[in-house]
């Protein structure tokens, strides 16, 4: 097989049915069907609703990806699929579809790690990943700092959230402020009109004592509670809640602590490249804070464009193509979906 393999990737770990097609590091198609609107009225992703939507969207999304890429399925060299971590029932639909493709085409299947895929996707936009690099992945499902030596075989966790994921905090605070789900884009939007220093919200796990045990870990639950208290106190006193200012101050607290810890981790490892991925990486303030502070330390920041930061199939195809190019052994056909697949397991066996 060439070092420019044609790979189809399937992603169903949460509420997006993603099918991406790449040739080596070139993106050919990135078809996504989202069930986010079906979840909005529940204020969060409902696993059974997501699983049902994946089943309905799967074949049409595969079809759409092939059309966009202008390829025939039988020309594909390999199938890649997110085998974890994620919602168990949702993952299962994608893994079963990927196996059916592998079986029907007589091609190998690679069950890959969702988090590593968020890292690999940047290669489609910015070329080969620097090795090593430091990856910060922030979304509704994860907040982690990873040392990436080789995205196909060597990913080491340095820190992670000990409670809520960053994106979850955005959703919960958005709800407090009466903004729609998912909260990230709405907070980002209204925060532009607000003052980021209006309220000095707490930075989780940043005290000297916390840093001893949780230097590279995150905590957003206390921040969310602090916002709730502040809003309630305002409401009790009968004063209006300055939504834009609270959103901006909250967002600043999140971005501050994320960037501070990511840069600390990079510096401590002597790493000069920071990659930010996951849905929250689409946040404009996070990008700005990261770039501003990193440049002072001589650290380069890579952030894929927003469409590639949220969950999609292209990221899975990108990691699959890298697996093929580097000669990794494919996964067996009895590959399980693993909702708690550890980040160190980049390729599921």
């Amino acid at each position: 097989m060439s070092d420019e393999p044609l790979v189809l990737g399937i992603e169903t770990s949460c509420d997006e049915t993603g099918v991406g097609i790449v040739r080596g590091r070139t993106l050919l198609a990135d078809a996504v069907a989202s069930s986010v609107e079906e979840h909005a009225r529940f204020g969060g992703v409902v696993p059974e609703v997501a699983s049902r939507a994946h089943l309905e969207a799967m074949v049409p999304t595969i079809e759409r990806a092939c059309e966009t890429a202008g390829i025939r399925l039988r020309d594909v060299d390999a199938i890649a699929v997110t085998s974890g971590p994620g919602l168990a029932g949702a993952l299962l639909v994608g893994v079963a579809a990927a196996k059916a493709l592998a079986l029907g085409l007589g091609k190998p299947i690679y069950g890959v790690n969702h988090l590593a895929s968020h890292v690999a996707v940047d290669q489609l936009e910015h070329g080969p990943l620097p090795e090593p690099c430091l990856a910060m992945l922030v979304s509704g499902g994860h907040s982690s700092l990873l040392r990436v030596e080789d995205v196909t075989s060597g990913v080491q966790p340095m820190g992670a959230t000990i409670d809520d994921a960053a994106g979850e905090a955005f959703d919960k605070v958005a709800r407090l402020l009466g903004l729609p789900f998912p909260g990230g884009p709405h907070i980002d939007r209204v925060a532009r009109e607000g003052s980021s220093v209006y309220v000095d919200f707490p930075r989780g796990l940043s005290s000297r004592r916390d840093l001893e045990r949780h230097r590279f870990d995150f905590s957003f639950s206390g921040l969310k509670t602090a916002v709730a208290r502040w809003v309630e106190a305002r409401e009790r006193s009968g004063e209006p809640v300055p939504v834009a200012d609270v959103a901006a101050s909250f967002q600043e607290a999140v971005c501050d602590v994320l960037v501070r810890k990511a840069l600390d981790a990079a510096t401590s490892e002597g790493i000069e490249d920071l990659l930010i991925g996951g849905g929250v990486a689409a946040n404009s303030r996070l990008r700005a804070v990261a770039e501003e502070r990193a440049s002072k330390l001589g650290i380069r920041v890579r952030v894929p464009r927003p469409g590639l930061c949220t969950d999609n199939g292209a990221m899975v195809a990108a990691l699959g193509a890298e697996m093929v190019a580097r000669g990794r052994t494919p996964s067996p056909l009895d590959l399980p979906a693993d909702s708690s697949l550890p980040v160190t397991e980049v390729l599921a066996g």
Binding site: R52, L55, M58, L92, A96, A97, L101
Partner: peptide, 11 residues
């Protein structure tokens, strides 16, 4: 059930 159906449809 979904494993069977998505497999059948995709195959």
């Amino acid at each position: 059930l979904r494993v069977g159906l998505v497999t059948a449809r995709t195959l």
